[in-house]
């Protein structure tokens, strides 16, 4: 019994933390544009030197 009383809040805290992290990411605009980054990563940084 006692173990579950500690485990359950911890589990909820972890889940809550993950949700909070996601909310922060969403509010900072990380999910606004899902198409361009997939293209952008194909351009290596040194491309213009060659």
């Amino acid at each position: 019994m006692s173990v579950i009383l500690i485990m359950l809040p911890i589990a909820f805290l972890l889940a809550g933390g993950a949700v909070l992290a996601f909310i922060r990411a969403a509010r900072s605009g990380q999910f606004d544009d899902l198409d361009t980054p997939s293209v952008r990563m194909l351009h290596d940084d040194g491309a213009e030197e060659r």
């Binding site: 589990a11 889940a15 993950a18 949700v19 909310i23 969403a26 509010r27 605009g29 999910f31 606004d32």
Partner: peptide, 24 residues
């Protein structure tokens, strides 16, 4: 509009988190 889009995303996330934890 941007704020509305983000709100929707947050709603999906919260609902998903609740649903999965309740399932456990």
């Amino acid at each position: 509009r941007r704020a509305e889009d983000r709100k929707m995303l947050v709603r999906v996330a919260v609902a998903g988190a609740c649903a999965s934890n309740i399932m456990l």
